[in-house]
Every structure is written in C-alpha cells, then in structure tokens.
Amino acid sequence: VATLGLEMWNPDVLGTDPNSMYNILHEQLAIQTFQHLVVAHGYAHMRINLSKIKLSLLQRFYRSYVYSRISAAASSAVIFHIKGKPGQSTKVTKFFRMLDGDRVASNLRLKGKNRKMEHHRVDPETPKDSTLTAMLEAAPIDWFEPEVWNTFTVQERVEYTMGGIKVALPFEEHCDTLAKCTAWKNLPEAEFMERYGNDVLAQYQMPTEAEKAQLLRYAAGEDDEVDPMLMQVDREGLGGAAPGGGEGSGV
C-alpha cells in the first residue's frame, strides 16, 4: 500500500465510478496481493485450485464484494442531515419529503438484488440552513414561501419573472399524498391554472407595469429618480431586460 503512495487501502465505495483511477488502483492492489498469497500457499488450507484463478473472475468477485457488501455497510453507517433551504415554502418541503418516503417504501418492497442503494437521510427538528443562499435561476414561483417572495425588491421580482411565471403545485391540502396528486398532475396548463394555480399565484405580489416601466427607464439612463423601495442594486441588473409575463403550468 505504502509503495503506491497510499496511507491505507480505502476504495471509494460510496462513489459512482468503480473505473476511476483511484478505484482501479485499489482493485489491482487487492487482486495482486491475493494472487501473491495464493502462490505463497497462504490459502493452502482452503485447497484453492490455481488453474481456476483467472484475472477476469477475480475482478468480478472483487467488485461484487466491494461495491455491494462493503458499500452497503458504509452507506448504512453514514447519516446525511437534510439542511433547510432559506426561502423554500413549507409546502414544497413537505411535498418532496412525501415523495422521498414513497420512493424508500417502494424500494424496500423490491427483492434484495433489485434494490437501489439509499443514503440514510435524517430530517432534524431544527435543521441547519444550507450555505447555498443565492436565488434559484429557474424554479416555479411557489418554490418560495409567499411571505419571503413578497419581501424581495421589485427589481428582484422583475428579473425572476422575466421568463414567465410558473406554478408547480396546488395548495398543500391537494398535494400531501400521492393519491391526491393524481387529480391534477396530468391536467392541461390552462385547466390547472384555472382550478388550482391562480389561487396559489394570488398569494404572491407581482411587480406592476408602472414599476417595470420605471425600472427599465432607469436601466436605460432615462430616469435617475427611482423609488428606493424598487431596487437595491445597480443599473446592470436590468440591462436588456423586458417585462415578464405569461402563466405557467403545473408540474
């Protein structure tokens, strides 16, 4: 191990690439060590038939053991704490927790060899906030908690809605179980918005046309007097911007 520059034999069993240079090095080290021990009669008590030891067979045995049994044991020992996402609506959080729970339950119903490996995730009562605090570039508007969205500056809301407004989910009482989701998930865009989306959208304060026009004039250098409540950044933020519009569909 030391001659190859490694402090210990420690393959990346939680990764997704057994063929990485790092993992190939560990594989060759393990196989060559086994071959040397066999030749030196280290396994004589097991009466190993040397004529049956082929490199391809050893590679298959190695990968089966390392990336199945050892990987499963390592995954069960690692606990991932789900972090909070500043600004994310509780509706969206509960929706994805519901999907996660259903996926895990479905996976457990499969036979052992067909099960997908799952990380052990824990949703703490008081989660730490994620360090990723930048606004998402493209997400349905109801990803945000309405109270959070309504505190954004007008410029932030204009920039975020320039590509259109999307509503992904109805109110929480319509999407807290998979059975309820079947009532709306395949609806055409217009029907979804009429039955569910417009009520959700009404919680979010949208920039008025007058506010958009004033910001565009400021960006073009035509208006140097802008209400400080409209923006907190410079002209570059609206360079080439056009008023947003249009309503989105459910997902």
Rank of each mutant, 00 (worst) to 15 (best):
L4A: 06
G5W: 05
W9G: 02
D12M: 08
V13M: 02
P18W: 09
M21Y: 00
M21R: 10
Y22T: 11
I24W: 01
H26L: 09
E27Y: 10
E27I: 02
Q28T: 12
L29V: 06
F34N: 02
L37F: 04
V38K: 10
A44R: 13
R47E: 00
L50H: 08
K52P: 06
I53R: 03
I53A: 02
I53S: 03
K54G: 04
L55F: 14
L55C: 02
L58Y: 03
Q59C: 10
Q59S: 02
F61P: 01
R63L: 07
R63E: 00
Y65N: 07
Y65I: 08
I70H: 06
I70V: 15
A74W: 11
A74R: 15
S76M: 12
S76I: 08
V78T: 08
I79G: 00
I79D: 02
F80G: 01
H81Y: 11
H81W: 06
K83M: 07
K85H: 08
K91Q: 09
K91F: 07
T93D: 06
F95H: 14
F95Y: 15
F96E: 07
F96H: 07
M98G: 13
L99E: 06
L99G: 01
R103T: 12
V104D: 13
A105P: 09
A105F: 06
L108I: 01
R115H: 12
R115F: 10
M117D: 12
M117H: 13
R121D: 11
D123W: 14
S130P: 11
S130H: 06
L132P: 03
L132G: 06
T133W: 10
A134I: 13
A134L: 11
M135I: 10
D142E: 07
F144M: 12
E145K: 01
P146C: 12
E147F: 09
V148G: 08
F152H: 06
T153Q: 02
V158A: 13
E159R: 13
Y160W: 03
T161H: 02
M162W: 05
G163N: 09
G163K: 01
L169R: 06
E172D: 12
E172A: 14
T182L: 13
W184C: 00
K185A: 08
N186F: 09
L187M: 05
P188Q: 05
E189S: 11
R195G: 00
L201P: 01
M206F: 10
P207Y: 05
T208K: 00
K212L: 07
Q214L: 10
L216R: 03
V226G: 04
V226M: 06
V226Y: 14
P228N: 04
M231P: 01
E236L: 05
G237P: 03
G239R: 12
G240E: 10
A241F: 12
A242P: 00
P243R: 08
G246I: 12
S249Y: 03
S249F: 08
G250S: 10
